[in-house]
Amino acid sequence: MNLLRVITPGPLTTVQDSGRKGYQKHGLAQGGAADRHAFLWANKLFDNGPDQACLELAFGGFEAEALCELTIAVTGAAQEILVNGTRHPGWRTVQLKTGDRLKIPGFRYGRISYLAISGGVLSESFLGSRSIVVREQIEGLGAVAAGDVIKGAQATAAPTRTVPEQFRRYYQSPVLCRVIPGYQYKDFSSADLNGLFRQKYRVSQRSDRMGFQLAGAPLTSPPPGITSEGIAMGAIQVPGDGNPIVLLNDRQTIGGYPKVGVVCSQDCNRLIQALPGNEVRFTLTNVETAQAEWQVFERFFQMSRWCASGDRLSWA
């Protein structure tokens, strides 16, 4: 069913779900929602599962017209949305009537928002996922453009819900990236490791869904390149110029730069929200802590149920 007609997509709007699994051997990136925290909350407002797709809006500036009565929700960097010029807060469900003008202004803090609908966005599924990786130039799987019609399931009345304040994020603080050290960690000099973990980095202009290049005092003697190998989500590559790059959802599948470790997934969700100039620091963690956090995070979204009031959840 046709739900929304896009008037202005903004700088980059794509369809994203939990990503494409099992096709990296063909060179296809995993893709998927870059901030899984805001993504899962957008879906949770409708009791959608993690495989249901949302629109991922980078930087805001999105405008669309409702083609029927429907309920939407916007989470992430957009702290407010406009319906026919009237302000509504983000992180909650909002009712639209046929012909309503939805506008999501440019974001003050943060980079990414998710627009969710009940049952998820029904765009074309390719190899088990609707996620769009723009740089792969796969026919029919490009960014959302002006005039595109966003489709979804038959609109049913969705309950009114609000993400409880304790779970909302505002993306104003510096990002602390906890690093699981990798097997090449010991190949870095202690001076360079000190440099990496003691300094404040700034997000550079070269920061997108593929990766974030960080600006700071360059590491002076990163180890030489390695034989190209598969790159994990969050891997911190240090090329010869000594400036670290954290690789994210749309990263290339293999690469040969040395890697000091991997930013844990919970902190990748925060890093993608940082804007050029924002502060980033690294600190060490270990895989057991990161896995425990992953499990608690995922299980919360699987197990929690909304209370009838629509503003609280309990872990059933």
């Binding site: 790159i231 293999i254 992953w294």
Partner: peptide
Amino acid sequence: IDLVPSYTTVLVVYDPMQLDF
């Protein structure tokens, strides 16, 4: 979840909800 073979290695991506390292 996924396999990334390369020259001398295979990166094995798994679901930590089902199995740990």
